[in-house]
Design a binder for these strands. Structure first.
Lengths: 343, 343
DNA sequence: CTGAAAGCGCTTACAG
DNA sequence: CTGAAAGCGCTTACAG
């Protein structure tokens, strides 16, 4: 079944294909009468211009790439949805690429996206070696980092002040009266996690609260890993921490499960705080205290930069930093005396 | 910055573009020596063939569309990830389309996907009027339904036996000794939900357990809606149900929250059972008893049908039905006597 | 084994 | 205002 092309329309309407093209794109003047006729024919023949063909002539593909660690991770699936909605209302489609933060996948996906001539790439994935982006950044393909930073290269980026976020978490715990804290971090190579940890530690330092290095565990970013790591922390020798700062909600949930398994009550005996304010944090019992990033806003800004940036030229690369927010729910409370005795 | 084309390669290698094309695609015989030289030049110039251009010549775009209600819904984001992985290892990219089950969006997205000449569409979204798919199904664009059915049209589909799933849930509750059951369903127009409800009701009927129509509430598919609807059920006049069957995990979580808010203990005073076995069901406290669909397997089958189907012709449309599985966790238990008295 | 040429479905100057 | 023609980057018969 042949699809109808611009030639079919031209023939039916008794005009040239150039005129049809002009009518469709509102270019060059086309007489009202002819224009109407053309549109009628298009309607009748259910003509849909081929994006492929027009892309080949240098026009846009109206397709964007979105690189994230994992769509099935709620934090990123929520981002994906925002991106998709924005894209859709601007006439774009989005190709979702889950990288698992693996360089090999990042590079492969980027190559694929280039071959498909996407109009831009939104990068929300971490990677082991940020250098792999430098080649990309030197091409004319627009890219914008979201919820990440790539200090090594010159690109637009919109991200949350992760350092501040870590500090916020620490401040909350400090104010509650905690002094024995532990940290569950995802792979420290991931810059955002690294910042969060630093911010947390710095706030502790400023408050004169010591932080034992052995109380910082870094692991993969999944509930299972979080649980395993938290178990170490809870069962560990010496005094059990009275509070755990987790670099994301997934790890926090792992910690919640570890506590449950060990019969440690949250928040009475152990406070747990997450990061990202994903839907998961509203669903646990106790619901998670966490740090929120203004994702919708960030996605909006990143998207606009991505779509608008080709015009503005390569000159000024923006770095937009948003403020994180502490969301207090049920998983944090004052440290209890019991907590100590149990151990 | 001009991207390097097949012409550049041809010139550098001192051959014609046809020969370069043949070398790349392993078509026609190309002398080993020339071939090697060509590949060297491609390497050196970092040449990446344009998918756009080859697609225009009738080759594939290696891009697939995935229509689902909402990527940010964990059930679908998990599907999206499986699809993406399968697609990626077969060299395809996937454009994710969240429809919110709205016909208008479904139609718009399909049109977009057609214009972009995707090689196939995986449809996992519900819609108000399945008729909107008939035109699509008559085109040469391969489509496969996943976790859905579209009785009206002739397409491949791979889905779970939702009726059986509903019956499984009922069987579990019945065996526990429940007799006052309620149902929380998502929009009854969604065929899968409809089947689940019917299966549940049928099992009750067979067991001779009456089911009051007023105990069936249908609402949108979100935690918030589930909570609101469950609140109705719990506060409702007359005896409070001792068990609620929820057509998906999101609604079940809403029910969990409603119970918590009303001070009704789960599962002691109220059993709640979900559907889909999403990550959410492992995260709540109590963890959700739910019905699992073998999604990975289903996605694999659907994907293979989608990619292979053009060859096999239009003739035999398959309908593959998978068996659901009861996953017992903590949110269901025997009905207690207290339950009744409370109300 | 290799190359000249036509063509995929469009857009874009350029004449008229 | 409208059309003939060239060209985007490839692939595919078809000659040689």
């Amino acid at each position: 079944m042949k699809t109808t092309t611009i030639y079919d329309i031209a023939k039916e309407a008794g005009v040239s294909i150039a005129t049809v093209s002009n009518a469709i794109n509102g270019k060059g003047k086309v007489g009202k009468k002819k224009r109407d006729e053309i549109f009628q024919v298009m309607e009748r023949l259910k003509y849909q211009p081929s994006v492929i063909a027009s892309a080949l002539m240098g026009k846009k593909t109206y397709t964007l790439g979105l690189l994230i660690p994992d769509v099935s991770n709620p934090f990123f699936s929520e981002i994906a949805r925002s991106v998709e909605d924005l894209a859709h209302s601007a006439g774009y489609s989005v190709i979702v690429c889950s990288t698992d933060n693996r360089d090999e996948r990042v590079e492969k996906y980027i190559q694929l996206l280039e071959q498909k001539s996407v109009d831009g790439i939104l990068i929300g994935t971490g990677m082991e070696n940020p250098e792999i982006l430098v080649q990309l950044s030197e091409k004319s393909l627009p890219i914008v980092m979201i919820a990440r930073e790539a200090a090594a290269i010159s690109v637009h980026s919109v991200l949350t002040d992760d350092f501040k976020g870590g500090a916020l978490a620490a401040g909350h715990l400090l104010q509650l009266g905690h002094s024995r804290m532990a940290i569950l971090s995802e792979n420290i190579k991931v810059s955002s996690s690294n910042e969060r940890v630093k911010g947390f530690e710095f706030a502790l330092f400023e408050a004169g609260v010591p932080m034992d290095n052995k109380q910082l565990i870094s692991c993969d970013s999944s509930i299972k890993d979080g649980k395993r790591a938290a178990l170490e922390l809870i069962r560990g020798e010496g005094l059990r921490p009275s509070a755990i700062f987790c670099c994301n909600d997934l790890l926090a949930i792992g910690a919640l499960q570890a506590a449950k398994e060990e019969g440690v009550r949250v928040p009475e005996q152990l406070s747990i705080i997450g990061f990202d304010n994903t839907i998961l944090s509203t669903v646990t019992d106790p619901a998670l205290t966490t740090i929120a990033q203004p994702m919708d806003h960030m996605v909006k800004l990143a998207f606009d930069l991505l779509i608008a940036s080709p015009e503005s030229g390569d000159t000024i690369k923006q770095r937009i930093v948003m403020q994180p927010e502490l969301i207090i729910r049920e998983s944090t409370d004052k440290p209890s005396k019991q907590g100590n005795q149990d151990n």
